[in-house]
Design a binder for these strands. Structure first.
Lengths: 206, 206
DNA sequence: GCCTCCGACTTGACAGTGTTAACAGAACGC
DNA sequence: GCGTTCTGTTAACACTGTCAAGTCGGAGGC
C-alpha cells in the first residue's frame, strides 16, 4: 500500500476524490477525541521549555486531566453559589438549570472538556462520576418537588440533565441556528416540561 | 517571555505545576474544535502521497467539509427510511426520535462531526442550516399533532431536538455513567414530556 | 510514427506537534 | 568545600499540514 499509486486516466481524476472521501469517512466514523491546545503553546505561555511539562505531568493528557478536575470544581462552585437551600424545590431546580446553562455557554471550552470528551477508564476515574453526581443532585430536587418518587425521580433528573446538556451543547456548536428566545428561557421550559409544571406563560393566564 | 526561566527554589517545584494548569486553562477555555484524523493517514489509506490530497481539496478542512455533507445525507436518508407519512403524527415523532438517537449512537464519529463541531461561516454555509432543517421537520410534526401551534410549535420542536441531541451526546461521551434503561426509551420519554402526551406506562394504567 | 503538451501525481522542504534521553546549573546537607 | 539532588534545558525522534517544484505517461496534432 506504500507503493506508488498508478495514475488515474485522463478525465477520471475524480476517482481519487471519491476514494479520499471514503477513506476519510472510515477514519472519521470511529469515535474521535477533542484536540487539546498544543503542549508547546502552553509551555510557551508559561515561559518554560516543552520538556519542562514532563516534570509534572506524565503526558499532555495528564495535564488536561488536571484542567478538567479544576474546571469541574468551578462548575460545582457556581452551582453552589446560586443555590438557596431554603427556597422551593421547583425554584431551586430552575435556578440550578439557569446557572448550569449560563456557565456552559459562558465557558464553552471548559464545558466541552467536561461533557463532550470521552471519559477515562471507567474503574475509579472521576470522569464517570461527573455525570452521576449531577444526575443525583437533580434527582434529589425532583424528589423534593414531589412530582416523582424513587427510581422515577432519578429518571426524571437524568432527563432534565440530558435536556440541559443538549441546550448548552447546541448553543455552543450551532450559534447561527435560528434560536428564538434566550437560553435561560429554554432552560426553564425544559425543566417545567419534565417535572410536569405549567409554563410561566400558562401560569400567568390563570 | 522566550527568556530562560529562572528555576524555582527547592520544594517550590509545584509553582510551575500551577502555572501550567493556569495557562492550559486559559487556552482551553476559549472554544476549541474537534481534531480530524491526520490528512497523511487518510492519504496513506488511499495509497496516495499527502500532496495528492491538494489536487482535490484546498485544505484538510475542505475535505472534512465534504465528509460532513455526505454524513448529513446519510442521516437524512435514515430518517426518511423509517418515516411513515401516513401514520399518526405522534407515532411519526416517536419513530423519528428513535431513528435519530439510534443513528447518533451508532455513528458517534459522524454525529460529533455534524452536531458537535463549530459550523462554518454563517453566510450561505450549510452547517448553519443543518440544525434549522431538523428543527423545522420536528416542528411540522408537532404542529400536525396539534399540541402546539405556530411559533409555539416551533419552540416545542426546537426543545425536542435539544433534548434528543443531549441524549445522544451524553450517551456517546459518558458511556460509563449509570444510565438506567435504553436510549430508545429515554427518547420516547423526552418526546412525550414535550408534547404533553402521557407516558406509555401511564397510558397502560388507564 | 513522432513530438509536444498537460493532467495526475510525487518529491522534498518548511514549520509545527508530542515525547524522550542526555545534559547543565544552582541550592542544599554534611 | 564537596557531592547530591532538584529544576530545568538542549537536541533529537517521528509525526503533522501545506506548498513549490519536479516527474511520469498518455492524449492529441501533424
Amino acid at each position: 500500500m506504500a507503493q506508488r499509486r498508478a495514475a488515474n486516466r485522463r478525465g477520471e481524476g475524480d476517482q481519487l476524490r471519491l476514494e479520499l472521501i471514503r477513506a476519510a469517512t472510515d477514519l472519521l466514523v470511529q469515535p474521535r477525541q477533542v484536540s487539546p491546545p498544543s503542549l508547546r503553546a502552553i509551555a510557551r505561555e508559561v515561559g518554560v521549555s516543552p520538556s519542562g511539562v514532563y516534570l509534572h505531568f506524565a503526558s499532555q493528557d495528564d495535564l488536561i486531566a488536571a484542567v478538567i478536575d479544576a474546571q469541574y470544581d468551578e462548575l460545582r462552585a457556581a452551582l453552589a453559589a446560586t443555590d438557596k437551600p431554603a427556597a422551593e424545590p421547583l425554584d431551586r431546580l430552575l435556578a440550578m438549570a439557569r446557572t448550569y446553562v449560563r456557565w456552559g455557554i459562558d465557558h464553552p471550552g471548559a464545558y466541552q472538556l467536561l461533557f463532550e470528551s470521552a471519559d477515562a477508564l471507567p474503574a475509579g476515574s472521576m470522569a464517570g462520576g461527573t455525570g452521576d453526581e449531577i444526575m443525583d443532585g437533580v434527582a434529589a430536587l425532583v424528589r423534593a418537588h414531589g412530582s416523582a418518587r424513587g427510581a422515577e425521580a432519578r429518571h426524571t433528573g437524568m432527563r432534565i440533565w440530558i435536556a440541559l446538556h443538549g441546550l448548552v451543547s447546541l448553543r455552543i456548536h450551532k450559534p447561527h441556528a435560528s434560536w428564538a428566545g434566550s437560553a435561560e428561557r429554554d432552560a426553564a421550559a425544559l425543566v417545567r416540561a419534565h417535572v410536569g409544571a405549567p409554563s410561566a406563560a400558562a401560569a400567568r393566564k390563570r
